[in-house]
């Protein structure tokens, strides 16, 4: 069972995230890390391979610093990494991102499973998995909160707003997992040492045969017109409960016409 896990290096949500002058996400001024939601995908890939055999390849797109996301995944136990790094990619939208990922997956050799997290923690759109399934012509098995892979068939539970669905597809398939599916492991000391010897390939757009005119900020199918920092919320009235806290709360709601 060979698995490719797509991961993203993102600005730390705990830090003061913001934008560059061209309205692209500031990826330099803040600390970056492996998107938390991708850890669940790496963990799931490791569990599947550990239950049988096979290899886990971690794939990322991003500037030089994105190598950290690959490194963390290798430390967790993935076997090898591929890092697509090309200045022309900067500012790409989800369409271009999915195009580059799809071409990289084809070059790696379409695996039994392409695994992703449910969304990145910076863009948070959650659309790249479905785009990848569409581009690669793979069955889409997304938002898995439970997953079993058996006899070449993936079965998963998807919790929607109105129903919990069971979804089945034959491999090869594209699978995305939620943060409900497992408990990602921490890299062990042994894992950290072993990761140093694991192979990481660096590819450019030319290696993938993707034209620079198909990616990047200038060629994106969406454009950010303006970004505005919201003024911080002003703290309102805080009362300490002295036996009448509930009454005061109800009064506030009445005054503001919620009751």
């Amino acid at each position: 069972m060979n698995i490719v896990v797509c991961v993203k290096h993102v600005p730390d949500a705990q830090s003061d995230r913001g934008f560059n002058e061209d309205n692209t996400t500031d990826r330099e001024g803040v600390d970056g890390l492996l998107s938390e939601l991708d850890e669940y995908a790496v963990e799931q890939a490791l569990q599947i391979v550990e239950a049988g055999e096979g290899e886990v390849t971690v794939l990322t797109i991003g500037p030089a610093a994105a190598a950290e996301a690959v490194k963390k995944s290798l430390q967790m136990g993935a076997d090898k990494g591929v890092h697509i790094c090309d200045d022309a990619i900067a500012g790409s939208d989800a369409l271009a991102t999915s195009l580059v990922l799809a071409e990289a997956i084809k070059k790696i050799g379409t695996p039994d499973i392409v695994l992703t997290g449910m969304a990145s923690t910076d863009g948070t759109m959650g659309v790249v998995p479905a785009m990848l399934a569409e581009r690669l012509g793979l069955p889409q098995v997304t938002y898995a909160s439970e997953l079993s892979v058996d006899g070449g068939v993936a079965t998963m539970r998807r919790d929607g707003d109105t129903a919990s669905e069971t979804i089945q597809a034959s491999l090869p398939a594209l699978i995305s997992v939620t943060d409900q599916i497992n408990e990602p492991r921490y890299p062990s000391f042994k894992g950290i040492m072993a990761a140093k010897k694991k192979p990481v390939e660096e590819w450019t757009l030319a290696d993938l045969g993707v034209d620079a005119g198909q990616v990047g900020l200038a060629n994106a199918a969406t454009a950010v017109v303006a970004t505005t920092k919201r003024p911080p919320r002003e703290q309102g009235t805080i009362v300490t409960d002295e036996g009448d806290g509930g009454t005061k709360l109800a009064e506030f709601l009445t005054t503001n016409k919620f009751v």
Partner: peptide, 17 residues
Amino acid sequence: LVDFGVVGDLFTVLPQA
């Protein structure tokens, strides 16, 4: 963040409200 806050035990404040 709040427009209105109560420092207190939700188990007494909420039932009263």
